[in-house]
Write a protein that binds this DNA or RNA. Structure first.
Lengths: 221, 221
DNA sequence: TAGATTGTTAATCGATTAACAATC
DNA sequence: TAGATTGTTAATCGATTAACAATC
């Protein structure tokens, strides 16, 4: 037991990106099965709704740290709880969103975020035509009010949905306001201090893959 | 030269997902540099705006099939054209979008798609409150009109932004209408015939990675 | 010429897949 | 018991990184 694996259940959360990205898909199916009255689920049942290889699913589930029973599979409730806890989706993070254009507005009203531990409590913009309005039930404030509101509401997470030209500027405001995690939907790589986590989302990547697939198909005709 | 590489320029488009996902990021920076008056770009200049390793960028660019000059780098115009052509972003695909909720509305107004060869020409829904309206300048029709319109406008691409419960139903309508490529934003894995390309986008995956990063950071405090 | 950069070939790393023993 | 399923250990595969020769 030298340099042991220090695995205290599922709480060590070794970052394995491919697995983490697949977890929401599993979770979605598990919840569906539960709502259909199932109590146990096997990997073979899971992959019916999926196109992953069974062994891949099993490897992923092992990381959740809950034991499966041969012949029956995993207890649905336990597995759901384990995944939610692994992802931190059992606790709620309150977040501010900056940039209420098409994409920002969508995220303000995107139910799955709220159901999965990310509660966007307010939007921010600099456009006077938007400030003061309400989008999907969320009030829009002027960016200049962000710092004060973040402190008062103890907000630690920010979402950036502004064009790349103003993304760094917005990030600086968020950092200055004490935000510790930024989900960045702009195309700009942000400069952030080491104590601020920054995750870049890239919708264009998805379009790129889709475009190439479309082309390949068209070339076959 | 047995079993030769059959590389006719960049037109073979070997599907290398990680590279394809990085291309839009390169493209974005290249266009910026061009607008700033640059004519040539080296990988070292590119990675200033990025956090990839230089060798990774070089490997990716080699796949674009255009030669770089030692000491100067790549001709910006050539590189931009090569990437756009690789991705098929130099030609326009017209698309229909089904499901005009928060996410669907956002995509209807998402400029970057239109700038990158995916022109959403109309939206569809079954909600009478939405049919007939205009979102971001795009007319919303009833789903029952899709088939007829698709044939008339020769639409071959569909985007699904409905809840998972109705996703398969919508996919069936699209397939029936002769659509050959589906970009699926729902959580359901769609059943499609082999001649229809389907690409699944999963916003929840991004949230999952972000959530885990947030947690890891909070655990450090 | 010296030095920066490209592009190729080899080495490493990490993720997926396969094989199989353990278990109910 | 027989058979399905878990979970571990080893093998394969593919992507990233390193090393280095070629080039301007």
């Amino acid at each position: 037991m030298i340099e042991s694996t220090e695995d205290q259940g599922h709480n060590n959360k070794i970052l394995r990106l491919p697995t983490i990205k697949r977890l929401p898909t599993y979770l979605h199916i598990l919840k569906r099965l539960k709502s259909e009255g199932e109590e146990y689920v096997s990997t073979t049942a899971l992959i019916n709704e999926l196109d992953f290889k069974p062994i891949l699913v099993r490897k992923d589930l092992v990381l959740m740290g809950i034991p499966g029973k041969p012949r029956t599979g995993y207890c649905l409730d336990d597995l759901i709880k384990a995944i939610e806890s692994f992802l931190g989706w059992n606790k709620v993070d309150k977040a501010f969103l900056v940039g209420t254009g098409a994409l920002g507005s969508a995220l303000l009203g995107h139910k799955p975020f709220e159901e999965n531990g990310l509660k966007i409590v307010a939007g921010f913009d600099v456009d006077p035509a938007r400030v003061g309005k309400t989008i999907h039930g969320k009030k829009i404030y002027h960016l200049s009010e962000l710092k004060e509101l973040a402190r008062r509401m103890d907000i630690k997470v920010g979402i950036i949905t502004v064009p790349w030209q103003s993304a760094q500027e917005v990030a600086d405001v968020l950092i200055e306001a004490g935000i510790k995690g930024i989900w960045n939907f702009s195309m700009l790589k942000l400069k952030t201090p080491p104590d601020v986590v920054c995750h870049n989302e890239n919708l264009a990547s998805g379009l790129a893959v889709f475009s190439v697939k479309l082309q390949q198909q068209q070339n076959l005709i």
